[in-house]
């Protein structure tokens, strides 16, 4: 019962929430495709800062960073002195950092608690 998306000519397996199943499947095209499903019409420079950081962090630690760290690092990479606000992240990714940004970055689904 696997679900999939089609980007270009490639079929990519996703879970029921639309998270891609294989880390290696990810590409910039797929990120663009997934962005549209998450209410991000155009991936701006700021979007890529967040997505690239998530991917770097995941490559190193095999886990998504905590929100606080993400806010700090995003602020730093955007050349600000302070961390960006959580609200700003929701302006970039309407469905939020866990659902939106992580999905676009091709990270596995964060195991949230209820």
């Amino acid at each position: 019962m696997s679900e999939h998306i089609e980007v270009g000519n490639k079929k990519i397996d996703v879970d029921e929430d639309g998270f891609i199943q294989k880390w290696e499947d990810w590409s910039k095209d797929i990120a663009d495709y997934l962005a549209k499903t998450e209410g991000v019409n155009e991936m701006s420079k700021e979007h890529w800062v967040v997505v690239n950081y998530l991917r770097e962090y995941y490559t190193q630690y095999k886990i998504a960073p905590m929100i606080r760290l993400l806010l700090k690092e995003t602020g730093k990479r955007l050349g600000q002195e302070k961390a960006v606000s959580n609200k700003y992240l929701y302006e970039l990714f309407p469905s939020g950092p866990a659902k939106g940004a992580c999905k676009i970055a091709g990270l596995p689904k964060p195991t949230g608690c209820v």
Binding site: E16, G39, G96, A98, K99, T111, G112
Partner: peptide, 19 residues
């Protein structure tokens, strides 16, 4: 199933995914 991640735009909480 374990987990599930759904929500509404602008909010990170309030909806819990069940499949």
């Amino acid at each position: 199933k374990h987990g599930g991640l759904v929500g509404v735009a602008g909010y990170g909480g309030g909806v819990i995914g069940r499949y």
